[in-house]
């Protein structure tokens, strides 16, 4: 169970999260929706401890993420997998090295066993025999799938997906959606998907939340959101240009702040 309680986050004068409350039961497939720059990725990074809240707290199975020292946080992170928006593959390594990195770092495994797990995870995402390729040789969709294989390499309990279909053509995007859904069903993992792609959200989500002006505006099932009369929700899910979402507002891109300071706050 993940609990997000009253999380506030600002970067300088820019308030991104202003009291987010959310509970994610084990085994649920939650989709967090919102416009670009609404703070979805920032919220995701709070869950895995890449960012610390200014106020409020994030609890994973009653453990407060922000209070953990670096070693405890590392232990917690081993229970998570994360797929990044642009896959974030290590371009100095081969595909096989990317997928097996966390296993090698954890230690205690023979190289032959690591290679077998790498092969197995790549097969699960529909990629076989590409262990020796460089990430730069892969298409966008393949990179995302390798990123996903890396995220599930340690058999995590939770997977965080940051815009899994962004930048992909509709066919490849749907392949990724199918893959996410099948991994959820086969591995019984708790999934949190951040996206603004409604087609993806409808396919992978059992529950949907809409992040708006720093807090959760809507929380319900895919049917609930489809039938919602809230003007903000209505405009968002139909992708209309006119409406409360676009009245006098501007997109604001949010960047991850100073990493040194962040890590220092985790007591490293």
């Amino acid at each position: 169970m993940i609990k997000i309680e009253g999380v506030h986050k600002s970067f300088g004068s820019l308030k991104v999260l202003e009291g987010v409350d959310l509970e994610i039961p084990t085994g649920e497939n939650l989709v967090i929706l919102g416009r670009s720059g609404s703070g979805k990725s920032v919220l995701l990074k709070h869950i895995i401890g890449l960012l610390s809240p200014d106020a409020g707290r994030v609890l994973v199975d009653e453990t407060e993420v922000g209070s953990l020292g670096y070693n405890e946080l590392a232990k917690l992170r081993r229970r998570f997998g994360m797929l990044f928006q642009m896959a974030a593959l290590f371009d100095s390594m081969t595909v096989g090295e990317n997928v097996g990195l966390a296993l090698r770092e954890r230690g205690g495994m023979k190289e032959v066993d690591i290679k077998e797990i790498v092969r197995e995870k790549l097969a699960m995402v529909g990629l076989k025999g590409i262990e020796d390729k460089a990430p730069s040789d892969l298409s966008g969709g393949m990179r995302k799938r390798v990123g996903l294989a890396r995220a599930i390499a340690m058999d995590p309990e939770y997977i965080l997906y940051d815009e899994p279909t962004t930048g992909l053509d509709p066919v490849t995007a749907q392949q990724i959606n199918v893959l996410i859904r099948s991994l959820q069903e086969r591995l019984n993992i708790t999934s949190i998907v951040v996206t603004h792609d409604m087609a993806s959200a409808n396919y992978v989500g059992d529950r949907m939340c809409l992040l708006y002006k720093g807090s959760i505006l809507f929380d319900g099932t895919p049917e609930d959101i489809a039938n919602s009369k809230d003007p903000v929700v209505y405009q968002f899910i139909r992708g209309e240009a006119q409406g409360p979402l676009t009245d006098g507002t501007a997109d604001i891109e949010v960047h991850t702040p100073d990493p040194v300071g962040q890590e220092a706050r985790h007591g490293e």
Partner: peptide, 19 residues
Amino acid sequence: TMRVTEQIDALETLAIRPM
């Protein structure tokens, strides 16, 4: 480049200390 392409964040999520 690793910072702006989130590769350093990815190291952190894999419980590897970038430093």
